[in-house]
């Protein structure tokens, strides 16, 4: 695997406030690399340093072997970006935006097929201001792909989208990766990271506090699995306490929650079958990335 991004000991402060503190990571070619973190954790500053919009105070950044500060134009021709809080003029039409932005690059792909592919063909003569949130995001992705970039940076792409549009956008991101492009995805949606990311860096207070695959991060949490179900009246949950792997059994009326490790579901189901009990609404709750995130960053609400 080739490294397409290398960040070493990146530092950035704004007026005495440290936004990015000693951040290091690498991104491999062709992966979906995600950066998650609470609001104000420094995610956007990291991305902005990668695409040359911010000058780091210290540390080194190399993207496609280029220095984003001194080789901005060269790099700009080889990456695509969708930035948070960026927009187009309200009255600019969809086709005009693509036609205009295509002229900014040394090489660009024809924009008409892009419109087709991202479901905007019918909107080509619509003004930016009249597009829905999902359509705007698809237009931004199209703009980010105009120069057939090697790396695509997506900053909070799905914020403000309804659930349908979010899921549709995930498919689009997978489609981008299938074209062989590397994707760097900033988000604060955990389900998005679990669904898409090959590796994820958790950033908090400007520092990388964890970096691994989503599965490994969850596994490292060592959180117990829980099996939840309802049973007919009269069943005593205490009868399950000898089942292998169980650490706790709680009963609230007909609702039973069994916590433990190992093949918990199979063990519980077998024990219930032994007692001739058919459990209703049986489900398993496992740790997810959100638990990892809360465990790492704490549960206090921040601005």
């Amino acid at each position: 695997m080739t490294q397409v991004i290398e960040v070493r000991n990146l530092h950035k402060t704004y007026g005495g406030v440290t936004a990015v503190d000693n951040v290091s990571f690498t991104v491999e070619e062709g992966e979906i690399f995600s950066i998650i973190g609470p609001n104000g954790a420094g995610k956007t500053t990291v991305i902005e340093s990668l695409i040359g919009l911010r000058q780091p105070d210290s540390g080194s950044v190399s993207v496609l072997g280029l220095d984003p500060q001194t080789e901005a134009r060269k790099l700009g021709n080889r990456i695509g970006t969708q930035l948070q809080e960026a927009a187009l003029p309200e009255r600019m039409k969809v086709w005009e935006a693509l036609d205009l932005y295509a002229s900014f690059y040394e090489k660009s792909v024809p924009w008409a097929p892009l419109l087709e592919k991202w479901g905007l063909a019918e909107k080509r003569n619509s003004q930016f201001g009249s597009l829905s949130g999902g359509q705007k995001q698809r237009l931004f992705i199209s703009l980010a792909l105009l120069n057939d970039p090697q790396i695509v940076f997506l900053d909070e792409l799905t914020t403000g989208l309804d659930p349908q549009a979010r899921r549709a956008t995930w498919d689009l991101i997978r489609a981008v990766r299938e074209q062989g492009k590397t994707v760097v995805l900033i988000t604060h949606f955990m389900d998005e990271v679990e669904a898409l990311a090959d590796r994820v860096a958790v950033i908090d207070h400007g520092r990388v506090i964890a970096l691994d695959t989503p599965d490994n991060l969850i596994a490292n949490l060592n959180r117990e699995t829980q099996v939840l179900f309802s049973v007919p009246n009269g069943f005593q949950a205490a009868r399950l306490e000898n089942v292998g792997g169980i650490t706790a059994v709680n009963q609230y009326g007909q609702q039973i929650t069994v916590s433990g490790n190992g093949p918990l579901l199979a063990n519980v189901a077998a024990a219930l079958a032994q007692h001739n009990i058919a459990p209703a609404d049986l489900r398993v709750q496992q740790a997810n990335l959100e638990d990892v995130f809360l465990a790492l960053t704490g549960q206090t609400i921040r601005n």
Partner: peptide, 17 residues
């Protein structure tokens, strides 16, 4: 207005300068 809405920000993220 272009600055407030992020239009200048989007333009800056191109090789345009």
């Amino acid at each position: 207005n272009y600055r407030d809405l992020g239009i200048l920000r989007r333009l800056r993220a191109t090789p345009l300068g």
